[in-house]
């Protein structure tokens, strides 16, 4: 029953958008266009992401991840997750499933949150865009200031979650 319930709000929304088109309701049409723009991005991007995550899950052994970015990995591990995150693309909600799989394979709490921070703020494909519109000085400065800040967030979250049975769940 609960499974079906989850689908009611999205379906309701889509019906409303459909009705707006039928009756030329401008606000609904504009919202529909916005929605379609976001939906297109998601539906192209996320299935690929999940295929990669699935493959990652079956092929990459836990020991590998644990050794390189696990609890004992230190600065090298932090560098590695940042590198991994910056090479990716896509919206933040695409990073959560990947964070889950890293955690499942033994990535440390600190590195999970550093990964999220780096993924959201200093992805290289996005940086080229940022430089184009806001200039090299702005982008460089922002990156340099942001980097230590989200590493600090990683440490903060690790400290806070210590002994609290933190877990990243499979949705």
């Amino acid at each position: 029953m609960k499974k079906v319930q989850k689908y009611i709000p999205p379906i309701f929304f889509i019906i409303l958008i459909g009705l707006s088109w039928l009756f030329d309701f401008a606000a609904g049409e504009q919202i529909g266009l916005n929605f379609w723009m976001f939906f297109k991005e998601m539906i192209l991007f996320l299935p690929l992401m999940f295929i990669l995550i699935g493959l990652f899950d079956v092929w990459v052994p836990r020991e590998n991840i644990e050794k390189h970015i696990g609890k004992e990995s230190g600065w090298k591990g932090t560098g590695l997750v940042i590198l991994l995150a910056t090479l990716q693309a896509g919206p933040l909600y695409g990073a959560f499933p990947f964070a889950y799989i890293l955690w499942k394979k033994g990535c440390s709490v600190r590195n999970v949150f550093i990964y999220l921070g780096a993924f959201s703020t200093i992805k290289i494909p996005m940086l080229t865009f940022e430089i184009g519109f806001l200039g090299l000085k702005f982008s460089l400065l922002r990156t340099l200031i942001t980097l230590p800040v989200f590493i600090l967030i990683g440490y903060l979250m690790e400290g806070y979650l210590k002994g609290k049975n933190f877990d990243v769940k499979q949705p």
């Binding site: 989850k6 689908y7 939906f39 493959l55 990652f56 092929w59």
Partner: peptide
């Protein structure tokens, strides 16, 4: 692997659309 990924995607889909 692909099945695992697809399963996760479809479980998340309603939340995403919302």
């Amino acid at each position: 692997g692909v099945k695992k990924g697809a399963l996760m995607f479809f479980r998340l889909l309603p939340t995403l659309v919302l």
